[in-house]
Simulated scan of single mutants.
Amino acid sequence: MQTTTLTSTWPQTLCDPSGRRQAKPRNKGCTMVIDKGIGQHAFADMLSTSGEYIDIVKFGFGTSTLYPLPVIQSKIALAIKHGITVIPGGTLLEAAVRLDLIPGFFRQVLELGFTGIEVSDGTINLSRTLRNDLIRDAKSMGLTVYTEYGKKLFGSRIDVTDFARTAEQDWACGAELVTVEARESGKGVGLFDEHGECREGDLSHILRVVPNLDRLMWEAPLKEQQVSLIKSLGPDVHLGNIPVNDIITLETMRRGLRSDTFELQQVPYSEYMI
C-alpha cells in the first residue's frame, strides 16, 4: 500500500486557537515531563509525537543510576536533539549530599551529557549555604539549574513567607526556575490536599507574596490540577511532573483545544456569535 505525501496542513489558528503558544526555545509555558523508567523505544516514540511540546525531561527520583549506561546516554542525546533540557531527579542529588558523594554526582552528570540538574531538599534538610553552593557550582559547569521547594512527606504544606525568601535566594544564585513540590502522585503535598485538589487559599497567598511568578514551575501531575492552574495563571504557566502519556493532552488545554479550557480561544467576530 502506497502512502501519499501530504502537502497541506491544518489552519494555523485551528492548531493554536489561543494564539499564545511560543515555539521552542520557550520562556513561557514550559512543560517538564517525568520519565519514571520507560525504555529507549518508548522514549523515542514520545519524542517523535510530543517532542515539540516538551521543554524539560526529568529522570525521576534516583532512576538515573539504574539504567545501563548506553541506554541513558542514548535517551539523553535524543532529547537534546529535540531541544530539550535533560535532568536527573532531585532525590539523586539529595542522596549524593547525604552520602558525601557530590563530586562524583557532578562528574557523572557531565559525562552522561545531562544539561541541567534539580536542587531540592524534599527528603533531607539542606542548609542555605550548601544550597547556594550547589546552585552556583552547577551553573559554573554550564548546567541549567532548577530548584524545588517543599517536602515530600504526606500532609506537608507551603510556608509562603519561607517559600518567597527561598525563591529569591535561589534566583539570585542562578536558578532558572523554582518548582513547587507536589510529588508524582499530586496528593497531600504542597499546593494540593489529600484528594489532589488545589488549595485555593494557599495559591492566592503565593500569588500575592512571591515575586517573579513567571519563574515558578508548579508540579501538577493530575489533569484537574493542570486545568486549575491554567485557568488561574493562564496557558503560559510552567508545569512539571507531567506523565509521559499526558503531554499532548496538556498542550491541547494550553491552546484551548479541549473543553476544559475552551474559553482560551481567541474567537473572531462572526455571524455565529450574533
Results as ranks from 00 to 15, higher is better:
Cys30Asp: 01
Asp35Arg: 03
Lys36Arg: 15
Gly37Ile: 00
Gly37Val: 03
Ala42Glu: 15
Ala44Glu: 13
Leu47Thr: 00
Ser50Arg: 08
Gly51Leu: 06
Gly51Met: 08
Glu52Gly: 09
Tyr53Trp: 14
Ile54Ser: 00
Ile54Lys: 06
Ile54Asn: 00
Ile56Thr: 00
Ile56Trp: 01
Lys58Asp: 01
Lys58Phe: 04
Phe59Thr: 02
Phe59Glu: 01
Gly60Tyr: 02
Gly60Asn: 07
Gly62Thr: 12
Thr63Trp: 11
Thr63Met: 14
Ser64Asp: 05
Thr65Asn: 12
Leu66Gly: 11
Val71Ala: 10
Val71Asn: 10
Ser74Val: 04
Ile76Lys: 02
Ile80Glu: 09
Lys81Thr: 12
His82Thr: 08
His82Tyr: 15
His82Glu: 05
Ile84Pro: 03
Ile84Met: 11
Ile84Ser: 01
Pro88Ile: 03
Pro88Thr: 09
Pro88Val: 05
Pro88Arg: 07
Thr91Gln: 05
Thr91Leu: 07
Leu92His: 07
Glu94Arg: 07
Ala96Phe: 05
Val97Gly: 01
Arg98Gly: 08
Leu99Lys: 12
Asp100Cys: 09
Pro103Cys: 11
Gly104Val: 12
Phe105Gln: 03
Phe105Ala: 01
Leu110Pro: 04
Glu111Pro: 03
Leu112Glu: 07
Gly116Phe: 06
Asp121Leu: 05
Gly122Ser: 11
Thr123Val: 14
Ser127Thr: 14
Asn132Thr: 12
Asp133Lys: 12
Asp133Glu: 14
Leu134Pro: 05
Arg136Ile: 13
Arg136Gln: 15
Ala138Lys: 05
Gly142Pro: 05
Gly142Thr: 09
Val145Ile: 11
Tyr146Val: 02
Tyr146Met: 06
Tyr146Glu: 02
Glu148Asn: 04
Tyr149Phe: 14
Gly150Lys: 04
Gly150Thr: 06
Gly150Leu: 08
Lys151Gln: 13
Leu153Met: 11
Leu153Cys: 00
Phe154Val: 12
Ser156Arg: 05
Asp159Pro: 07
Asp159His: 12
Val160Glu: 07
Thr161Lys: 14
Thr161His: 12
Phe163Ser: 00
Arg165Phe: 10
Arg165Ile: 11
Thr166Cys: 11
Ala167Ser: 08
Gln169Lys: 14
Gln169Ala: 14
Gln169Val: 06
Gln169Thr: 10
Asp170Glu: 07
Asp170Pro: 03
Asp170Trp: 01
Asp170Lys: 06
Ala172Lys: 15
Cys173Asn: 11
Gly174Cys: 06
Gly174Ser: 09
Ala175Phe: 05
